[in-house]
């Protein structure tokens, strides 16, 4: 198992390398010039050129990429072209909101979606099943910002129950922290609930048709026992896979959700950096996101063996 994990982690290196090279080339080829943005409206072409030189942006591709890679290997993500702060600091300041948002979304999604999926499978073919599945396909179809605005309109502006924007860190108290996160998490979670409920239902249906479930039933195991212990455990694999894949979906979703709810997280940092051409920040954040994605995939594979001992790593 340990050697498997080590091998897998080593295998991420080429993937990360490709991501790094891809993003760097993309930014290099891109139009847009941070020096021109820094210089502002009154600048002359000459002033822009001077700023560009002072930022090292006039260097050839190989030199810039080499320099950046050298930094990365030494654990240094570089500094922002604009604020001059270390990229690692800027990322660290933004992790709490994004991570909290993702974790809460995940929790909401799992606690809602799995029971929904199980019930749909149990009541298969009835109106309950249909209602749940209609909800699921709807959740999959309505864009996250539309859900976000609807929620903010209803709960924030009409009933004034929850704040419509911002983020309160956990250090300021649990309830205020939760208050600012509920609407964004629900908005972001809608699609995730839809997805997981569908997967759970499908996996449950397959398992419920298997012989050993019938056997369990025949042996008098209660309905709940059959559903939640025997069947769900065996239906877990596809659910875990999709939950893991869904992390990518969450990362993308945070970009939009954070923007709509004015949460100072990684998503807004990234979009802003892209628009300002703050190259080191873009590269840093994309590397982080990609690494997270790869890591989550690894965890998913490890969970397979937990849920299904037949799978050897």
């Amino acid at each position: 198992m340990l050697s498997y994990i080590v091998r897998r982690l080593l295998a991420t290196i080429p993937v990360m390398g490709i991501v790094a090279l891809f993003v760097f080339s993309l930014l290099y080829l891109a139009p847009g010039d941070p020096a021109a943005i820094i210089a502002g409206d009154q600048a002359t072409v000459e002033q822009i050129a001077k700023i560009r030189a002072s930022l090292g942006l006039d260097q050839p591709f190989v030199v810039r990429f080499g320099h950046w890679l050298w930094q990365i290997v030494h654990g240094n993500l570089g500094t922002s072209v604009f604020t001059g702060q270390p990229v690692s600091t800027m990322i660290a300041e933004r992790i709490e909101p994004t991570l909290s948002l993702m974790v809460l979304t995940m929790l909401i999604a799992l606690t809602l979606a799995i029971p929904l999926g199980v019930i749909a499978a149990w009541k298969h073919g009835t109106w309950i099943d249909r209602a749940i599945m209609i909800f699921a396909v709807l959740g999959f179809s309505v864009p996250v910002f539309v859900v976000a605005y609807l929620l903010a309109y209803v709960f924030g502006l009409t009933f004034r129950l929850l704040p419509v924007q911002g983020f309160t860190p956990l250090a300021k108290g649990f309830w205020p922290f939760l208050g600012t996160l509920v609407l964004p998490s629900l908005a972001l979670g809608a699609i995730y609930v839809a997805l997981l409920a569908r997967i759970t239902r499908a996996a449950m249906l397959e398992v419920l048709a298997q012989d050993y479930v019938r056997t369990a039933r025949a042996k008098g195991v209660g309905q709940g026992g059959v559903l939640f212990v025997h069947a769900l455990k065996n239906a877990a694999n596809p659910v875990v896979t999709v939950a893991g894949l869904g992390v990518a979906l969450l990362i993308g979703g945070t970009v939009v959700t954070e923007t709509v709810f004015a949460i100072p997280g990684l998503g807004t940092l990234t979009v802003n950096a892209i628009l300002e051409r703050d190259y080191p920040v873009i590269q840093g954040v994309v590397l982080l996101f990609s690494f997270t994605y790869v890591l989550v995939n690894l965890i998913v594979d490890l969970l397979y063996s937990v849920f299904d001992p037949r799978i050897r790593l």
Partner: peptide
């Protein structure tokens, strides 16, 4: 497949935003 993994590892919204900012 490594290239595909690389692209897959970048959230597609971000990838699209980046590509669009560049064109």
């Amino acid at each position: 497949m490594r290239i595909m993994d690389g692209i897959l590892a970048i959230p597609s919204i971000l990838l699209a935003i980046a590509l669009m900012a560049l064109t």
